[in-house]
């Protein structure tokens, strides 16, 4: 009996080994692809099928077909979107950090090297001269306030989810980012208006001339203690003016293109606008950081010009001697330099 069971088991095992390959043969015959994607004949069965590469040879993007009115939704694959995403999520944060932190570091190093640019106290006359009238200060501060909020909300687009969200949590960051977006979109308009007004008000004093070249060659007062000749605005201030005018215009145009999507540009165009907007914005912020530094911490007496509008006459003579001469020539009787007067005549 025991021998019979052993024989039967051996027979069943042998039968299984013989029959099994035959049982799986039909499946292999229908799907003969091996692990490396080749079938036993050495050919790739999908070689002639429509693939991504083939479709991109016919058009720069792959589209489907939709029945809704928004035909843009039929886009399936658009390679430029990947390049844009790579820039937006990969390169842009590093470029932004390099420029802005680089500028902060450079200003810190300059402050340590040069210290605060001071006016010799013995030169202070105690008399004031009106440097910027109320309208000019209003224009400057309206643009400046908008710029600061636009900068912070703009940087939030780049760095917020990376730096702020881990600190305050996704809910708070979501609310903050939404309000920052509103501020960015709506305060862009008073900013553009302010830049336009500043351009109109100050362009006549910002035309480059030979005095500017001499000012640059002399180091602009940053090197050494003597201040080179300057009219109402020196070459550095003129540089800030043209930077604000040029970058302000570029930011306005590229921003409006994104505010009105598909009005003038397609998705590719808007991505290009976003790249330009972000890169110029970063350089713009770095430039304005230098402007804020020299207008506050970097130079004694400079803030008064935009704070109260009046600067010390000796400070004005040291930094803008040609402008003081012009003003004095305009008002020989001296209302412009009325020491102790509460309401000096406007400079313009």
């Amino acid at each position: 009996m025991r021998r019979a069971v052993t024989l039967l088991s051996t027979l069943v095992l042998a039968t299984t080994l013989l029959v099994a390959p035959g049982a799986f043969a039909p499946v292999q015959a229908q799907n003969p692809i091996t692990k490396d994607g080749q079938n036993p004949m050495g050919a790739k069965p999908t070689a002639d099928s429509v693939n991504e590469e083939f479709l991109f040879k016919n058009a720069d993007k792959i589209t489907g077909r939709v029945s809704i009115p928004d035909k843009k939704s039929q886009n399936l694959i658009q390679p430029q979107g990947r390049e844009y995403q790579s820039f937006r999520e990969g390169y842009l944060p590093w470029i932004g950090a390099a420029f802005i932190l680089g500028m902060i570091g450079a200003l810190g190093a300059f402050f340590l090297w040069r210290g605060r640019i001071l006016t010799d106290d013995t030169q202070e006359s105690g008399r004031k001269i009106l440097r910027f009238n109320a309208f000019e200060r209003f224009t400057h501060w309206m643009t400046a306030v908008c710029f600061i909020i636009l900068s912070l909300s703009g940087l939030n687009y780049i760095f917020g989810k990376r730096l702020l969200m881990p600190l305050i949590g996704p809910e708070a960051f979501g609310a903050l980012a939404q309000w920052a977006k509103y501020a960015h979109v709506y305060l862009a308009w008073p900013f553009m208006f302010g830049v336009t007004m500043m351009f109109v008000v100050w362009i006549k004093d910002n035309i480059p001339n030979r005095i500017d070249w001499a000012w640059i060659k002399a180091g602009g007062g940053f090197i050494g203690k003597k201040h080179p000749h300057a009219a109402r605005f020196n070459a550095g201030q003129k540089g800030v003016f043209w930077m604000v005018a040029g970058f302000g215009a570029a930011m306005g145009v590229t921003g409006v293109m994104m505010l009105f999507p598909f009005a003038l540009l397609d998705i590719n165009g808007m991505q290009v606008m976003q790249v330009i907007h972000s890169l110029i914005g970063i350089v713009f912020i770095a430039g304005i950081l230098a402007h804020i530094y020299i207008g506050t911490l970097g130079m004694k007496g400079a803030y008064d010009a935009m704070g109260s509008g009046k600067v010390d006459l000796a400070w004005a003579r040291a930094h803008h001697d040609l402008w003081v001469e012009q003003e004095q020539a305009k008002t020989l009787s001296g209302p412009q330099i009325g020491g102790g007067r509460r309401h000096p005549a406007p400079a313009e």
Binding site: A134, W141, M142, W189, P190, G309
Partner: peptide, 17 residues
């Protein structure tokens, strides 16, 4: 001038909105 500038910026922003 600064306060008026802030008010004007907010006012123009709301108008833009």
């Amino acid at each position: 001038a600064f306060i008026v500038a802030v008010i004007a910026a907010i006012g123009l922003g709301v108008a833009a909105m």
